[in-house]
Design a protein around this nucleic acid. Structure first.
Lengths: 142, 142
DNA sequence: CAACTTTATGCAACTAAATTGCAAGAAAAA
DNA sequence: TTTTTCTTGCAATTTAGTTGCATAAAGTTG
C-alpha cells in the first residue's frame, strides 16, 4: 500500500481520490499552511468545493491536520507532525506568518516556553502565532 | 470634556453617539473581548449593523482596540491598555479563551516570554492565545 | 465476488460574517 | 454660518462555510 494511503488508514479515513490528492498536496511542503481557497484553486476542477470543505473537516477531526488561529477570519490548516495515530496529540509548536509572502508555516523545531498564568487558570492548549518577516523574505530583502 | 470623549480625540476619532456607546461598553470590562455579534445584541436597535462594523474597524485602525486571533473565524476585539495616543503600541500580552464560559480575556499582567526563532526570522508581533479553564470557572467546578 | 452496509461525493440551496456604494446627515474647521 | 470632511443608514453584494438529499463509491460480510 502506498504511503499516503497508509496515513489515511492510520487516521481512520477511507481512501478516496480527493483525500489522496489533498493529503499529497499538504505533504509537498509539510510546514506550510493551506486555506480552502488554496485547495480550491488546485483542485476546483477535479473536485467539488463542498467536498474540499468536508475533506478538511475530516482531516481535522481525525487529527491529520490542525487549524491555525489567525486574525484573518479564514481557516488555515497544516499537517500534524506525528505520522501515525489520530490519538497522539501533536506537539505544540509556533506558527509564523510572514507579512511579505503571507505564508503561514509551522516552526516545529522551535518550542514554546512554559508560561505562568494567574492562579486557578488551567492551560489546555497554547496557540502561538508570530508575525514578522520569514527567513526567505528577509535574506532577499528590499 | 468627558473622559470617553477625550479618549476618542486622542485616537483621532470624531465623537459620535455610536463611538461613545461602544467605547463605554468596552470599558465596562476592559479585559473582556467582544465580537460584532455581542455589540449588535447590545446596540442593534439603536445603531445599524454596518455602522457597528465600521466603528470596530476605525477603533482598530486608530489603535483603540486590537483584534484577537482565534480559530473560530469570528473577529474578537478588546481595548488596548494604553489610554492615550494611537501611535504608542500596545504591550504584547496573552489572550485566554475559556472553554467553559467561552469568554476571551486579555491577561495584561502575564508577560510573554522571549522566543528564539530560526536565523533570519524577524519578529514583529507575537500573538499568544491560551485555551483552557479560567479562574472563575475553575473555582466553581463541576 | 456478490450482496450489503456504511460512508463520501456532488449539487443546490442556505446561513453567517463582513464589505461596498451611495445618498443623506452630522462633526469639525474655516 | 457656511463649507468641508467624515460618518451613518440602507440595500445590495461578497466571501466563507454549512446542510439536506439523492447518488455513488468504499469497505465488509457471507
Amino acid at each position: 500500500m502506498a504511503k499516503i494511503e497508509e496515513i489515511l488508514k492510520n487516521h481512520d479515513l477511507r481512501i478516496t481520490q480527493i483525500r489522496v490528492d489533498i493529503l499529497n498536496y499538504f505533504l509537498k511542503d509539510k510546514s506550510n499552511a493551506l486555506t480552502h481557497a488554496n485547495l480550491e484553486q488546485q483542485f476546483g476542477k477535479k473536485h467539488d468545493r463542498v467536498t474540499i470543505y468536508r475533506t478538511l473537516n475530516s482531516f481535522l477531526e481525525n487529527g491529520l491536520v490542525h487549524k491555525i488561529a489567525d486574525d484573518s477570519g479564514v481557516a488555515k490548516f497544516a499537517v500534524c507532525q506525528h505520522g501515525s495515530s489520530k490519538h497522539k496529540h501533536d506537539e505544540q509548536h509556533i506558527h509564523f506568518k510572514c507579512k511579505k509572502c503571507k505564508r503561514i508555516e509551522c516552526l516545529h523545531h522551535t518550542s514554546i516556553p512554559s508560561l505562568i498564568l494567574p492562579t486557578n487558570y488551567k492551560i489546555e492548549t497554547v496557540n502561538l502565532l508570530i508575525e514578522g518577516i520569514c527567513g526567505i523574505c528577509n535574506t532577499k530583502a528590499t
